[in-house]
Every structure is written in C-alpha cells, then in structure tokens.
C-alpha cells in the first residue's frame, strides 16, 4: 500500500530528477489521474496526451512546486490533472474567449496546514447535498465538465447574471458549510 508519505517522498525525489521515483510515482498515481482526465475529456486519445503532458511537466520542474502544506499529494496531483484537462477542453471549444486556463500559483505554505487535508475528504459532497440540486449540479459541472458561467447559463436557460448570482450564493453557502 502506497501511503500519502510515500507519494510525497516520490514527488520530492522527482523534483531532484530521480528516475526510479518518477517511475514509482507514475505507477502509483497514473491510473487515478488517467481516470480523472478521461472523466473530464471523455476522449481516450486526448486523455493519453494530457496524461503524458502532466507527468512530463512534473518531471520538467512541476514537482519542485509541490510544497508540503495543506494539499495532500493526491489532491495536488488530481488538481493538476483536472486543470490540464480543462485547458485541453477549452482549446477545443472555439466559443470560449479563453486562450489558456489559469496557472494557479503555489503559495508556498508552511507546515501549519498539514493536518487539515484528511478531514476534507468527501466533506464537499455532504455540503453540496445541502444546496439546491440544480446548483450542486452546476458546481459539479463546472469542476468536472469545465462549464463556465456562460455554459451554465445556457444549460439552465437563465440569464448570465442570474446564473452568477445563483452560483455565488451557492459558493457562499458552500464555504459556510465547509467551515463548520
């Protein structure tokens, strides 16, 4: 069984260009990440390319940006995989004015946040269930299908600003619930 600590160590060693660690990290995490990427892209060939890109970037400096902090290594990797998949999705959608999706800066966290991550597991599902089902679906759709405000407004057939208001309120409720 590969533990969180094992994966953290692998990422740190990958940052030092340790090839056996790179291989071990790939074996331990690629199926999870491929599952996520496939879920977002629903296209095997594209998903393979994104998977390659994710690991290549990790090797070429990405792993150095991992900081032991709030994010568990799997959560960190899942976020990268999801974000790269969304990037890919948007590139195929000419309707989106977006050229490139955001690079989220790594804030260089101290060790104080270490203990938090485990308790967050699946908490969000419980909190989403407290929302109106439509809005929970919108949040999930944004995260896993790459829907923007404009996409969601079209899907739920409401004006853009209505969708913004809805979702912003939902995000506030979500935050409230998550902070409990």
């Amino acid at each position: 069984m590969t533990t969180r600590q094992d994966i953290e160590d692998m990422i740190f060693r990958v940052a030092l260009q340790d090839r056996s660690a790179f291989e071990a990290l790939y074996s331990a995490t690629s199926a999870k990440l491929f599952g996520i990427i496939l879920r977002v892209l629903k296209d095997r060939a594209a998903a393979e390319e994104v998977l390659q890109e994710v690991y290549l970037r990790l090797w070429q400096g990405g792993a150095e940006t991992f900081a032991t902090g709030k994010a568990s290594p799997i959560s960190w990797l899942a976020t990268i995989a999801r974000n790269r998949s969304i990037d890919r999705l948007r590139k195929k959608r000419p309707s989106s004015p977006l050229e490139d999706a955001p690079e989220i800066a790594e804030p260089g966290l101290g060790p104080e946040g270490l203990a938090i991550a485990a308790s967050e597991r699946a908490q969000i599902n419980g909190c989403l269930d407290e929302l109106n089902p439509d809005r929970a679906a919108a949040v999930r759709g944004a995260y896993l299908d790459g829907d923007t405000y404009a996409d969601l407004a079209a899907r739920f057939d409401v004006p853009l600003n209505t969708m913004r208001t809805w979702l912003r309120r939902s995000l506030i409720s979500l935050k409230d619930c998550l902070s409990k």
């Binding site: 599952g35 996520i36 902090g69 966290l109 991550a117």
Partner: peptide, 18 residues
C-alpha cells in the same frame, strides 16, 4: 488552494483507469 483542495475531493469517486 483551499478551494482546489475541497473541489479535488470531487474526484475521489472517479474510478482509476490504467
């Protein structure tokens, strides 16, 4: 990042695919 971490748990239920 806090949100990233929360939202990333939405991937917990996604089955791994080799």
């Amino acid at each position: 990042e806090d949100w990233d971490i929360h939202f990333s748990t939405l991937t917990d239920d996604i089955a791994p695919v080799a």
